[in-house]
Nucleic acid binder design. Structure first.
Lengths: 345, 345
DNA sequence: TATAATTGTGCAAACGTTTGCGGGAGCCGC
DNA sequence: GCGGCTCCCGCAAACGTTTGCACAATTATA
């Protein structure tokens, strides 16, 4: 059982105190024309004194607008969200919207529950990151009759993503150009579209360079530190560990580096590692992480702009795909000539 | 200018379709007694078919309860929030509340704005982490007539915190027991109460062991990677760098370790470092970070329970202070006997 | 001075719900 | 056949706003 809110002063209370009608108070507070300056000032002063705060639920009932956008995130401290959320908040703010976050914990049911919760509160629209439902929203659109834009789900018509495949290709190109041929990939959950795209990039580069793709070299991960570490254990247990590994994201990369270090399989001396995202942390890890940078602030900003268009009923929107950029730091390096001979092919 | 929400099906639409009155629909949807099973089923089916989602704003207007709690966080990807938010969400959920997050960016004005935003939406209560206002809420209580509980602000009557001073003492004790005598502290923003408490703990231990506290050894930081790195630069530039440093939190600690490493001032060989928080990342850093663990899940859970009490109008609540726990990993080690001789005292 | 335009304010409906109260229909027992 | 009871359901008020319209008072125009 939930509890009641403390009594708040209403527009009627002010009206009574000022000896005017509620409508006059409403108009005064909005500085409508047609209210004398004197009454207006008196009412506004009174409202201030009485500690009046308008009730948005009541207001939204008649205006049919909550000026609220909901954002579903994976969890509160997902480091990938840092710049992305700033992007959406800044954009939303400048248009008079407030944004509220709620976490899905990468669970499809929770995600739907959160969306429903936003809809019940009549949010103007929602942005979802790390969706487990993805293109499934196309069928759910009458269940959730509110504008939804996704990030990193290029199959959904209202989405903005980074070019995952191209980003992955840059990463793997970098590795093969450094002489690596046994290159592993540690994945995200299989179902993830983003994962499929990055995996495709990985495979494309290998094929292009006539390097056989060895299925034992694609490890199951989940985008977490722990998942990365687990994948690293598997690699270490193999008879012929890779000399380089490309990871779904930076967290996984840190997980594998950590596990490699523990096993004295040094990065980058024994093995190169590259991540994805370019978290702020990446530059502070040891060694500083080579990774591919997502323009996450820009993703957030554009997602919000797209959502605004949808809210306004405009349909001239289309999926946006933003470029990724490889940033080379210190977890990658050329394989030594000697090693290249024995390990090559 | 914000935009209107798409038309939703209302209880009246269902009533019309079912040939009954709105009140009957309402009662049917809530499975009130006094509605025949047949009509009830018919209405519920119809509601499902028509894609009805109740309007919480409208509902809350009459029930005077939004079943919503607001949580203000510093920013979306603050790693300290990981377990804390889970704690409040799980507790809230079990009591039928939804929780929404909004970021303050450690700015007092933004923080007030967020609180006001929650109050306008008639949230039942709010929890704020990393408050810049702190005990200032005591004076703001009539401006924000809704229950507020703070975390890590032990001066505020409705708060749950970790025992910062005791935690800091454990950390510094550990360092002096390892033979260190030149121990630095890298702080958070000065104003922060949490910072003052940890600093007090630091000073207390030094005094207890008759180690003079050198003001040059308390460095200004801000709890970020970058701030930690800056503080490290300062220490390195000094004529006599410390042999150990205690940091306000893990992020700062990682920042100093990173900067130390860059300068080939190895951790822990040349210098021990201990953080605060025990982020998940701490165990994955290299070397794995010695730190003091905050019971952050428990903080979240208790904060939410406290808030629930306040919402119910109970006043039998009081500040809670939870114990911290030192976890020793690999960024600290005894100072070598030789060094102890030349550096000691 | 009568009329028209202007200015300031109030009335009432509406938004989508919930809920106390009253009332009609059916049934029972006498 | 009548009173009483139970079972379903509708009426209407209320929550806190906004807003179209009417209206009274004041001022400008003829």
């Amino acid at each position: 059982m939930t509890g009641k809110v403390r009594a708040s002063v209403s527009i009627k209370d002010i009206a009574r105190a000022a000896g005017v009608s509620p409508s006059t108070v409403s108009r005064a507070l909005h500085s409508h024309p047609g209210i004398s300056a004197e009454t207006g000032d008196r009412i506004r002063l009174l409202a201030e004194e009485m500690g009046y705060t308008p009730s948005l639920p009541a207001r939204s009932l008649v205006t049919r607008d909550t000026a609220t956008i909901g954002m579903v995130i994976t969890h509160a401290s997902d480091p990938f969200l840092a710049r992305l959320v700033v992007g959406v908040e800044e954009c939303a703010r400048s248009e008079g919207y407030a944004v509220f976050l709620s976490s899905s914990y990468r669970d499809a049911e929770r995600e739907q529950e959160v969306i429903r919760s936003f809809h019940e509160r009549r949010a103007s629209g929602v942005i979802v990151t790390g969706s487990q439902i993805g293109t499934g929203y196309l069928e759910l659109s009458q269940r959730f009759p509110l504008p939804i834009v996704l990030t990193n789900c290029s199959g959904y018509p209202y989405s903005v993503s980074t070019d995952n495949q191209a980003g992955a290709q840059q990463a793997v190109e970098h590795l093969v150009h450094s002489g690596h041929r046994r290159i592993a990939y540690v994945s995200n959950q299989r179902s993830s579209r983003t994962n499929r795209e990055r995996l495709a990039g990985y495979r494309a580069v290998l094929q292009e360079h006539a390097i056989p793709v060895d299925d034992d070299l694609v490890l199951e991960g989940d985008g977490t530190l722990e998942g990365g570490a687990r994948a690293a254990q598997q690699m270490l247990a193999s008879s012929q560990p890779p000399t380089a590994v490309f990871c779904f994201n930076d967290m996984a990369a840190i997980g594998v580096i950590h596990a490699f270090n523990r096993a004295d399989y040094r990065v980058p001396h024994c093995c190169s590692v590259v991540g994805f995202d370019d978290l702020e942390l990446a530059g502070y890890y040891c060694p500083p992480l080579t990774t591919v940078r997502q323009p996450s602030y820009e993703i957030g900003r554009r997602a919000m702009r797209m959502l605004l268009k949808l809210i306004q009923g405009r349909e001239d929107v289309q999926t946006e795909i933003l470029p990724a950029e490889l940033v080379v730091r210190e977890t990658t390096r050329p394989v030594p000539r000697s090693a290249r001979k024995e390990k090559g092919r």
